[in-house]
């Protein structure tokens, strides 16, 4: 007996798929994000192919990386000398990291993680809720706060950089001239910089002042550096406020490992 094959009409197909789309859209983000994380988890190896090549190419195009042949030879010799030392130290770091990754130091409350995928103003790390990561935790790179956890699945998490407009943090601006701190809120501008919002002009703030992430109960116990004020001018649209631009303390392309601050329950 011939088997009848289900083949809906074009209109039924379209309506059905659109409805399916809206169902996907209405399912909470916490649930659907697991699929996105699963994709990165499965294809993590392939996603990172070419990362060093890409960085090398960008570096070569940048005039800051161009040096004379003599300087190059000198640097090359120094590089060769260091290479041997580095490989030895890498082995030691790897062993130490393994211990820290499986059992983070309770006093420091840090979970070390590797970046598995980079995106614009965000990245994915290989640690998740199973390691104690939750939304809002601060992420360190190059000893500075570089962003915060946006979403966490069991084994991977997404991190928003402070240069992302989706990342808003309370900050303290150190003013050594008056031996004081000014409070504010930092938000990324999606262009590799961040802005400190709504700071009144009456505060004497200058270029070069350091910006720290403000302590936050359950997430950060003491201030941590974020960056430096690169531009501080009067806001054109609101003349009573400053327009403060912050240059982050990190170079995102250089960061491969990060640490997430996980405050233990008893310390919260």
């Amino acid at each position: 007996m011939a088997r009848s094959r289900f083949k809906p009409s074009k209109l039924t197909l379209l309506v059905g798929l659109v409805l399916m789309g809206f169902i996907l859209l209405l399912i909470p983000q916490d649930i659907t994000s697991k699929l996105n994380f699963a994709f990165i988890d499965i294809f993590g190896f392939f996603l990172n192919i070419g990362s060093s090549a890409a960085y090398q190419q960008n570096s070569q195009n940048d005039p800051l990386f161009s040096v004379s042949r003599q300087e190059y030879n000198k640097l090359q010799a120094a590089y060769e000398n260091l290479q041997e030392k580095v490989s030895e130290q890498e082995k030691q770091i790897e062993q130490l990291s393994r211990v820290r990754m499986t059992e983070p130091d309770p006093a420091a409350g840090l979970v070390l993680a590797k970046i598995v995928n980079r995106r614009q103003n965000e990245f994915i790390i290989n640690r998740g809720s199973a390691d104690g990561l939750v939304k809002g935790q601060y992420v360190l790179g190059d000893n500075a706060v570089i962003g915060c956890i946006e979403q966490a699945s069991a084994d991977i998490s997404s991190v928003k950089l402070i240069t992302s407009s989706a990342c808003k943090l309370h900050v303290k601006i150190s003013a050594p001239d008056v031996n004081s701190y000014f409070n504010g809120t930092i938000q990324g501008d999606d262009k590799n910089r961040a802005k400190i919002l709504n700071v009144p002009k009456k505060y004497k703030i200058k270029d070069g002042y350091y910006v720290y992430a403000a302590p936050k109960t359950g997430f950060l116990l003491s201030p941590r550096i974020i960056g430096k004020i690169s531009k501080c001018v009067v806001d054109e649209t609101r003349p009573l406020l400053w327009d403060i631009t912050v240059k982050p303390a990190y170079e995102f392309d250089d960061i491969t490992d990060v640490a997430v601050i996980v405050i233990k329950q008893e310390l919260k």
């Binding site: 659109v18 789309g21 996907l24 859209l25 983000q29 994000s33 996105n36």
Partner: peptide
């Protein structure tokens, strides 16, 4: 799947 939100591109591409 390549992004972080499921649904928007499914509908718009479709």
């Amino acid at each position: 799947m390549t992004g972080m939100v499921l649904g928007p591109h499914f509908i718009s591409y479709g």
